[in-house]
């Protein structure tokens, strides 16, 4: 029974921002507003943006943001206003702060560290040849795309090897 609220949350979220009753007359401002909506969390829904949500709070937030934009606020000012009022949680695109350093930096650190290892590895002196025995080398040859008859023969020969022991 814990799941019904979740589903209702999902169902309420039927993209409502395009509702003609809410739109701004200025098309450029409306486009900016829509972009901001997609980056703003609907706090009472389940991980949806206010662009999609039909919830009352989302409609209120849309109206507030549209008012700010109509009054000439920049995108940054609107974001700062939202974060001040509702906390960083409301922003889907987290701001670049020290708290979020790991979030924004982590992936690139991993990529750079990997590339570093790749380059570093090249500088190592070549290690000696693989220590496979000649017999194993021969078998590897067989494994690596030699004729099928050879392979089948080999497995046939070995088929009874286990039970002998």
């Amino acid at each position: 029974m814990t799941r019904w609220p979740v589903i209702l949350g999902a169902l309420l979220c039927l993209a409502a921002a395009a509702d003609p009753a809410e739109r701004l007359p200025n098309a450029a401002q409306e486009t900016r507003a829509r972009t901001l909506f997609r980056e703003t969390r609907c706090l009472v829904c389940q991980g949806e943006s206010i662009d999609e949500s039909d919830a009352t709070l989302a409609a209120d937030l849309r109206r507030v943001i549209r008012q700010h934009i109509a009054a000439g606020a920049s995108d940054g000012q609107v974001r700062a206003f939202l974060a001040a009022r509702y906390g960083d949680f409301v922003l889907f695109r987290p701001r670049i702060t020290w708290t979020n350093a790991l979030l924004w930096g982590g992936p690139f650190i991993v990529a750079l560290a990997g590339l570093g290892l790749l380059v570093f590895r090249e500088r190592r002196p070549p290690t000696p040849a693989p220590d496979l025995s000649p017999e194993e080398e021969a078998r590897l040859e067989v494994l690596n795309g030699a004729s099928d008859t050879l392979t089948t023969e080999l497995s046939f020969k070995n088929a009874s090897g286990l039970t002998e022991r």
Binding site: S49, D88, F92, P94, L103
Partner: peptide, 23 residues
């Protein structure tokens, strides 16, 4: 992985937050 678990990480430090498609 970080993006998905970020809300949990922040919660452990008593904060709230999360990331979405833009991130």
């Amino acid at each position: 992985l970080t993006g998905t678990l970020w809300p949990l990480v922040l919660e452990a430090f008593g904060r709230q937050g999360g990331v979405g498609a833009p991130y």
